[in-house]
Design a protein around this nucleic acid. Structure first.
Length: 386
RNA sequence: CCUAGCAACAAUCUUACG
């Protein structure tokens, strides 16, 4: 079993699901019973890729085979529901775990708190710290980072600060992740100078900022039109011995797009090539979006061509951006053709975003009546309107 | 009794409408 578990774990890390299930079959053929580790590994993997239905199928099969879930299994299950925002089902797993007499550990709590935060209940997750104390489970730095990130995502600086204080009071030392969450919440409150200062402070705290910390600040600045300030952060990074990565440059390109400075956005692409920073689909999608905003159709087509030549596959963002452009130009039929002719588009299938663009396009060009029938067709096609 | 051995948690980029 351990050998198979190790193999399954390897395939899981590479997201090679067919092989994972092939291993399971092979085990059955050889009469080797999967154990809780096997199921936990698989459920965790499926949860990570968002296949909740499959998760539930494996979970059910585990019971049929007479295998009992342990803490790892329950945590992996919860994570699967939470990542899909199915909070009540995740909490249901939690209660079942308790009922079956398991005493949750820190990791299980961290998963639960993360789920509550995702569901918009960050305050509740903060209150759970009391419950943890009662059960004599000591929150760790991950616990606090989950909560602080929850507050950060809703822009709640007061909440984040309270969680931070509680962390410090409990004697838990912040690490780079927690600091980065604080940088994030400061940025969301437009307190860029404080975010900048915090990065300097963390170094004194024997906690070196990393590329994610800087990217967080750069993203905040770019999002709010402060792209020049963002560019200056590159120097700061250098001082801290931190090299910009693909995401850094993608953010800067987007920063220029946001303020309509498309030439400089393209210069970012040039710089990436010069410095041999790997471009990815996001890089091209960002510029593509910029092109359409600025009505640069020739450049847009060139970009798609360059993308393909470099072996970067267009993804849903790419297709949706093209569909959006077609609709804006009144070429709704071309958009529909692209959405329906998924054959030439690899794995891609039109999603809610694509259909929404088309519906808006139909409204503008053919009237609401046709849009309603299109919506009807979309629903019949299994895509639910949001 | 000792030792070894497989699994679970956190932060950063791009698309519609608002």
């Amino acid at each position: 079993v351990s050998v198979y578990n190790a193999l399954i774990d390897g395939f899981c890390r590479e997201k090679r699901l067919q092989e994972v299930f092939r291993m399971l079959d092979e085990m059955a053929q050889r009469g080797i019973d999967p154990n809780a580790i096997t199921y936990s590994t698989i459920i965790n993997c499926l949860s990570d890729v968002g296949l909740v239905e499959l998760v539930m199928a494996v979970w059910g099969k585990m019971f049929i085979k007479g295998c009992t879930p342990n803490m790892y299994t329950f945590s992996a299950m919860m994570k699967g529901f939470f990542l899909k925002e199915r909070v009540s089902e995740g909490v249901g797993i939690w209660h079942r775990m308790i009922e079956e007499g398991h005493v949750p550990n820190v990791v299980a709590y961290n998963v639960l708190l993360g789920g509550l935060c995702r569901g918009g209940n960050t305050q509740k997750s903060m209150d759970m710290l009391d419950e943890m104390e009662k059960r004599e489970i000591v929150p760790n730095v991950t616990t606090y980072s989950v909560i602080i990130d929850g507050f950060a995502k809703s822009g709640d600086l007061v909440g984040a600060s309270q969680a931070w204080n509680r962390m410090v009071m409990s004697g838990c030392r912040p690490n780079v992740v927690v600091y980065t969450c604080m940088v994030d919440v400061l940025c969301r409150n437009l307190l860029f100078d404080q975010a900048h200062a915090l990065i300097q402070k963390m170094a004194d705290d024997k906690c070196a900022p990393n590329v994610i910390t800087f990217n967080t600040l750069i993203r905040g600045l770019c999002e709010h039109g402060r792209v020049d300030f963002a560019v200056s952060i590159l120097d700061m990074m250098e001082n801290y011995g931190c090299s910009p990565d693909t995401i850094t440059y993608n953010e800067l390109a987007n920063g220029y797009v946001v303020v309509g400075r498309w030439e400089e956005a393209f210069q970012v692409l040039g710089e990436m090539k010069e410095r041999e920073i790997q471009m990815n689909a996001v890089t091209y999608n960002t510029l593509l979006h910029g092109c359409y905003r600025m009505n640069l159709l020739k450049e847009a087509l060139q970009l798609v061509g360059e993308m393909v030549v470099r072996g970067i596959s267009p993804d849903a963002f790419t297709y949706n951006c093209i569909i959006h452009a077609y609709c804006k130009l009144g070429k709704v039929n071309a958009a529909i053709e692209l959405a329906e002719g998924g054959s030439a588009c690899g794995d891609w299938k039109a999603d809610v975003f694509a259909h929404t663009h088309i519906i808006l396009g139909i409204c503008d060009n053919f009237g609401v009546g046709d849009a309603v029938s299109y919506l009807q067709k979309m629903i019949e096609g299994g895509i639910f309107p949001n």
